[in-house]
């Protein structure tokens, strides 16, 4: 575990990042092997349709609950909106196996950085860290496994502003002003959010919390209407989308009971 002390200095001026530490210890995948490419008929489990938009208090992130492999529904209670730290969330479309591992690496990276360097990693540093993980994963993507297209949302407490990014599979990060959506149902989601933001009663950033939640439920229902890979609301089994908000105070997850009430009153 801990190396017996040798004479040479162990710390470089640039602090080691957590992913590099894991790799050195053999706990994190290196480059993909050839074997991955030969499995052409392999159906990966995929998670679909996530969205995020800024509203009056901060940023709202929502995701449906369905995970699919080809035309099979693998799971209908998947959690695609993952808490990374007190003020940042990662939402995932793509292969959960890779995405959940990325979220785990990120979560530990940020804490590892804070504990070892005795300061919080900057928001730009966090955004870049996810970009680097996606870039490292691109070898797998090219071989046909493990594509992840995430959204990263955070509240910048220092500047009192919500920040929102989406990524492509290669790791390019795009900061957006108002909203982002990725996954198979995202076309419908983007259309509605664009419409509401441009010609609606007021821009999304002025929407109040409760109205924003209703909108998120409505757009996910719309996405599920035409996309089989997006799970809608299953009232019988009380399966609702995951909706989380980040505000100055931190992250809040909407309880299912609240969602059920809102859904019954204003959506269903």
């Amino acid at each position: 575990m801990m190396e017996a002390r040798a004479g040479e200095p162990q710390r470089t001026p640039m602090p080691e990042d957590f992913a590099a530490l894991l790799r050195r210890q053999g706990h994190f995948p290196n480059l993909p092997t050839q074997a991955a490419a030969s499995q052409t008929n392999f159906l990966q489990t995929q998670a679909t349709t996530i969205l995020a938009f800024k509203f009056a208090d901060g940023v709202l992130v929502a995701g449906d609950r369905r995970a699919t492999a080809g035309n099979v529904v693998v799971y209908d209670r998947a959690d695609k909106v993952l808490e990374i730290d007190a003020h940042s969330l990662m939402a995932i479309a793509g292969v959960p196996a890779t995405a959940w591992e990325m979220a785990r690496v990120l979560e530990h990276s940020f804490q590892f950085y804070r504990r070892s360097q005795l300061q919080e990693m900057s928001l730009d540093g966090k955004v870049r860290a996810l970009s680097k993980l996606l870039r490292d994963n691109f070898g797998f993507v090219m071989q046909g496994v493990g594509i992840v297209v995430p959204i990263f949302a955070a509240y910048d407490v220092g500047n009192s502003a919500a920040r929102l990014y989406f990524y492509d599979a290669m790791g390019a990060q795009f900061e957006v002003a108002d909203y982002a959506a990725t996954g198979s149902g995202s076309a419908a989601v983007r259309s509605i959010l664009y419409y509401e933001n441009t010609w609606g009663k007021k821009p999304l950033q002025k929407w109040k919390h409760d109205d924003a939640v209703v909108l998120a439920l409505q757009v996910l229902e719309t996405a599920a209407e035409a996309d089989t890979a997006t799970g809608g609301v299953d009232k019988r089994r009380a399966t609702f989308p995951i909706i989380k908000t980040i505000t100055e105070a931190g992250i809040t997850t909407l309880p299912e009971k609240t969602l059920a009430k809102i859904y019954k009153k204003q959506v269903g």
């Binding site: 957590f18 804490q111 504990r115």
Partner: peptide, 18 residues
């Protein structure tokens, strides 16, 4: 202190992750 602190953090973080 710094070396021991880092060693403790690395061991704990690696275990917590894996």
């Amino acid at each position: 202190i710094e070396r021991l602190r880092m060693a403790a953090i690395e061991v704990a973080s690696t275990e917590g992750f894996t």
